[in-house]
Design a protein around this nucleic acid. Structure first.
Lengths: 142, 142
DNA sequence: AAACAAGAATGTAATAATTACAACTTTGTA
DNA sequence: TACAAAGTTGTAATTATTACATTCTTGTTT
């Protein structure tokens, strides 16, 4: 069963070797990878893969709504193949991005109450120190 | 009365002509300007101003917690001198960033319930179409 | 007031992520 | 098999941001 392939089709994206591999990668790596992470990791399996293709592909996926592009990292865009509503947490120390459950409902603005604004997507970003780094910091500073 | 000057001092930032001008600009322009917006607009008043100074200054302000740096725009960082808790909305058409009130409380993760994660800041970003652009789109498409 | 040191500002050069683009390849179909 | 459309590739360009060495300010000490 090729889950990634079907997922692309369901999202109106023509599958190709590269696209399937990238989508598969995002399903299997919930690490919010960057273009370079993906490019680097898929290079063994697809030696001809081009960085431009990774850029093009991820942009297409995001436009089609198949994935999320995250701007939580001010340096580079990160990508997330997990579409369930959740928040993100970036550690200022180790720079990793974690999924955070949204316990309470976040206000997702709809047609009303927003002066006619139409929201397409909503992101909740937290920045701070992850459990591990927070622990280290406390040991050293306090 | 120099509000900006005092505000900098209160935030542990030594005031200078450039710093006061940039802080004043942020107080007076609730437009979430980029480095280049600020550099361009202050150039008349301070012809010797350097783009690097604007970068350094904004980074310092953000580190000291005097302003917010927004990554809602994947191209460049935007800055916000308004510190009250609020969300942001970027229009995918006209590219402007608007303040949006946070009606319900957003989950601000604290020490508990977050596996030891320590959040420093939380941002809520909406992307979509602002009232004006949404109206135009409807006229043309529907 | 002159000398001095620390911090700030400046301008240019480097870096790094992203995009533009033209050439080449793959795919599906007639 | 031929062909067109779409997809991929690699290089070159673009753009935001940072590094860094030099110059300028400011406040302090003599």
């Amino acid at each position: 069963m090729n889950h990634a392939r079907q997922y692309l089709i369901d999202n109106g994206i023509k599958p190709s070797v590269q696209r399937i591999a990238i989508m598969k990668y995002l399903f299997e790596h919930r690490t919010h990878p960057t273009v370079d992470d993906i490019f680097h990791d898929l290079h063994d399996a697809i030696p001809t893969l081009s960085r431009t293709t990774v850029y093009n592909t991820l942009k297409l996926f995001a436009e089609k709504g198949a994935i999320l592009s995250l701007t939580i990292d001010e340096k580079k865009v990160r990508f997330d193949g997990y579409k369930q509503r959740h928040a993100h947490f970036r550690c200022l120390e180790c720079d990793e991005v974690f999924d955070i459950s949204l316990d309470r409902d976040v206000e997702f603005p709809q047609e009303d109450g927003l002066r006619g604004f139409k929201a397409v997507e909503t992101h909740v970003y937290h920045r701070g120190y992850c459990a591990e780094c927070a622990k280290k910091k406390n040991f050293n500073n306090n």
